[in-house]
Amino acid sequence: MSVRTWDDPLDIAVTTVAEVASGKNPVLVVIRDEGVGGGLGGWQMYDGLNLSGRSPVCVAKPDLIALDPTLSEITDLPVGWEAHRTAPGQPWQRLQSNA
């Protein structure tokens, strides 16, 4: 299990959707995947809605923290893990990914 810091310079962006990037929808699902750098880890943050028909966008991690400071609670999420919550302000539930 690899743990990298949130501010790691090799991992500067989050994959999300426009509704999250603009602040219209909150982040309810966070996925820390293997990423593209030999398992260094990549971040995906979504609103929990169906992704069908929506294109991914990349956003700098500090920009998402500025939109939702509670995301700082999951910046230590290890590679291969997910975090979910039912609504903003609700506690994050962490679990190891099946993917």
Rank of each mutant, 00 (worst) to 15 (best):
R32E: 01
V20T: 13
A87L: 03
A83F: 00
L51E: 07
P9C: 04
N50P: 11
L40P: 11
E19R: 15
L51R: 15
L95M: 09
D47V: 03
A60W: 05
V27R: 01
L77K: 06
R54P: 09
G35A: 08
V14S: 09
S22Q: 13
L71H: 01
R32Y: 03
L64H: 06
E19C: 02
G39Q: 05
T16L: 03
R94V: 01
T5K: 09
G23S: 03
V57T: 10
E73W: 01
I12S: 11
L77T: 02
K61Q: 03
V59C: 07
V3W: 13
L77C: 00
H84M: 12
P9R: 04
V57G: 06
V20H: 07
W6Q: 09
V27G: 02
G23M: 04
G23Q: 07
D76Q: 10
V30C: 14
G42Y: 01
M1I: 01
G80D: 00
Y46L: 13
V17K: 02
L77N: 01
S55G: 11
E82Q: 12
V17D: 03
V59W: 04
V79R: 11
Q96V: 14
P26S: 12
A83Y: 10
A66I: 04
I31L: 11
D7I: 05
Q90N: 11
A99G: 13
T70Q: 11
K24R: 15
L40N: 04
S2Y: 05
W81N: 10
G89N: 00
A66L: 08
V79D: 03
R4N: 01
V36C: 06
W92A: 03
R94T: 05
S97I: 01
N50E: 13
W43D: 05
T5G: 14
P26W: 12
Q93T: 15
V17M: 12
S55T: 13
P62V: 04
G42F: 10
A13F: 06
R4A: 01
G42T: 06
D47C: 02
R4D: 00
I31N: 13
S55C: 07
R4Y: 07
A13H: 05
S52V: 13
W81L: 03
W6Y: 06
C58M: 11
A21R: 15
L28M: 12
G89D: 08
W81M: 12
T5E: 14
L67R: 06
T86A: 15
A99Q: 06
R32W: 00
S2D: 06
H84N: 10
E34L: 14
